[in-house]
Design a protein around this nucleic acid. Structure first.
Lengths: 245, 245
DNA sequence: CGCGATTTGTGCACCTCTTCACAAGCGCCT
DNA sequence: AGGCGCTTGTGAAGAGGTGCACAAATCGCG
């Protein structure tokens, strides 16, 4: 979904870290591999086969090998992958070697939960600022962080060198917040508001809409119900769908 | 990602609602179209062209037309689509004509937020039960609903005719909860715990992992930084990525 | 009544992603 | 040292999704 750099372009074969230009589908799975690898490391595994890792990560082993091969050859034939080495490599590719500062805008219901979610800190992200447009919320302390007014964004962005913005506001406010984030130089946004954001080129937006996930499930539920109601109700169906599909 | 029904199979061409067998990518976009259509309806639009709807939904107009064509021909050439009619059709396909009952397991930080999220009710879902394994949380009232112990799931599932289960527990508890949900007949699960669930065939699982989204953004941020640091830093890049990619 | 403007529905070519299947490589055991 | 079993890395085929471009269809107006 990103670049349009021609595949055959020279590419300045320098000594840089390779800049591998991974397929988007692979990038979306790397975090899952990373989580699985951490779990394996915690249980004392030093190496793991593609088959083993694929099981823990919930994917096909061939797909996993192809994904990893895009990073380079970090496996040993006949043995498998060194868990620690692979963790380092993936973290390096994902840019997680440095802790990234996140600004969270919108401290309502969902924002509160996100502010308190410990899954961020444990995976290389630091919620560095909480912001809200509602003056009655400004000053509130959540998880050791004081909510500041969204207009302080320019100052906060510099002070904390914000890398990623998270929007957890109601939909009508989201576009304005996105504009403010872009204005202070944020180029990666995670949007929980149920609306489409328009941003300039070069800014990445990812969207998470909880209701949409339920609606997709509803469709499959509906379809399954229709099938079993049908006389010719054949055997069903699938297992485990990743969200990135 | 679902069926393996052979395309050439007879299929019992009955008078049933067609059972259109939509592409998965289309299904994932229909909820977004639905949201966009509701927005248009609220602002008084009676009809909309594919171009107009595509803009609001943040997709290509050709893709939108192809998606809608899978539902049947509900547009009028030279005019566009009737907003109300299209809403009805999509809701029907997604199985949203009846309100679906959702059981939410895990009333921690995230569970609280989900329980209070009004985006569910407004889009055809009713949180019918809150459950938790922690006795100290049982009895608490959230948003007019009392938290019950997860062991009451069998009774609750019948009483409320639960259609979808949402798991918002810590990762170590998630698999056990999934098993319990499956045991009481739930065949659609939305999993917020950062782990892979294994479920029997016929059960759909969708996963939402907030940290993964941030990590994907981190990758792009990292790549952008590397590019601009490079002397040959060409023009950049893209806009707006849907999560379903 | 016919014509032009407009918009849908879709055939087609392209591209990405997935999966299979297997050769190449590595370690261990004899 | 040699052979054997295991596992990686990858070529090739297939499946699925995307976007262009255009024919078909509808409306409004003269």
């Amino acid at each position: 979904m990103s670049q349009h750099r021609h595949p055959g372009a020279p590419g300045r074969a320098g000594a840089v870290p390779a800049l591998p230009d991974l397929p988007e589908a692979t990038v979306a799975r790397l975090p899952e591999y990373l989580r699985a690898l951490h779990a394996l490391a915690d249980t004392g595994h030093e190496t793991v086969s593609s088959e083993g890792l694929a099981n823990v990560a919930g994917v096909n082993s061939a797909k996993l090998r192809k994904d990893l091969s895009h990073l380079g050859s970090y496996g040993t034939r006949g043995v498998g992958y060194d868990v620690t080495l692979l963790i380092e490599q993936i973290e390096s590719v994902l840019g997680l070697t440095q802790c990234r500062a996140v600004a969270l805008v919108g401290v309502g219901n969902l924002g509160h939960a996100l502010a308190g979610y410990d899954g961020f800190a444990s995976r290389g992200f630091r919620i560095a600022a909480l912001l809200d447009a509602d003056p009655s919320r400004v000053g509130e302390e959540i998880n050791g962080l004081v909510v500041r007014h969204v207009d302080e964004l320019p100052r906060v962005a510099v002070e904390e060198s914000i890398s990623i913005g998270v929007i957890a506001t109601p939909a009508p406010a989201a576009q304005a917040v996105a504009d403010q984030l872009v204005a202070v130089g944020v180029t990666s946004i995670l949007n929980f508001a149920p609306c489409v954001l328009s941003v300039p080129e070069g800014v990445d937006v990812r969207k998470v809409d909880l209701a949409i996930e339920l609606q997709i499930l509803s469709f499959h539920e509906h379809r399954k119900a229709s099938l079993t109601a049908l006389p010719g109700g054949l055997a069903a169906t699938d297992t485990q769908e990743a969200i990135g599909t």
